[in-house]
């Protein structure tokens, strides 16, 4: 049992670590452990890597684990943490320039997603949020029907990481 008490770094933000990962991966010295988004704040858990290494996570504070975190590293082994992909809903605002309703739309979309207690990730003209199942897309389309002209709703299966993790209430 390997005890994991802290995160070494993240390969998506640390260039050196990414190179190290590429190197070790090419030598077959990397292992992966996959968790779900709901497990990213756990202070204590036991997991196996894809190669069967037995891991015990023990943190003192919310670790806020991220996709691409390196959780173990020595000369012979690097262990990378991955998040399981999940269904996300993506709402895209069409034609932002001509749309004089941006304010109203943003408020309505935010209000609805808040009512669904979803964490969000926002880009310039898009908002993404987790779906509990692919079937929720239909519900969303109904919910946003009045705004059909201004937005596009679609779904994707991908790793989702909220803007900033806050208490989530999904039901």
């Amino acid at each position: 049992m390997l005890v994991i008490k802290n995160i070494i770094g993240n390969i998506t933000t640390d260039k050196q670590l990414e190179e190290k990962y590429e190197l070790m991966n090419s030598k077959g010295s990397s292992e992966k452990v996959t968790i779900t988004r709901l497990e990213t704040q756990k202070l204590r858990m036991r997991k196996n890597t894809d190669k069967g290494s037995d891991l015990a996570f023990v943190f003192e504070h919310n670790p806020q684990l991220r996709h691409g975190d390196v959780i173990y590293l020595d000369e012979n082994k690097m262990i990378l943490l991955e998040l399981e992909p999940e269904y996300v809903g993506i709402i895209t605002l069409k034609d932002t320039d001509k749309n004089d309703q941006v304010f109203l739309l943003s408020i309505k979309i935010g209000h609805n997603l808040g009512n669904l207690h979803r964490p969000i990730q926002v880009t310039k003209n898009q908002v993404m949020f987790p779906l509990q199942a692919e079937t929720e897309l239909e519900m969303l389309k109904k919910l946003f029907a009045p705004f059909n002209r201004f937005i596009e709703i679609k779904t994707d299966h991908m790793v989702f990481e909220p803007e900033e993790e806050h208490h989530i209430h999904e039901h």
């Binding site: 709901l38 497990e39 756990k42 204590r44 858990m45 919310n62 208490h167």
Partner: peptide, 14 residues
């Protein structure tokens, strides 16, 4: 409770 209960990770580990 209903079928969507989960525990805050700040409260329970498992």
């Amino acid at each position: 409770d209903n079928i969507t209960t989960t525990f805050s990770p700040a409260l329970a580990d498992y």
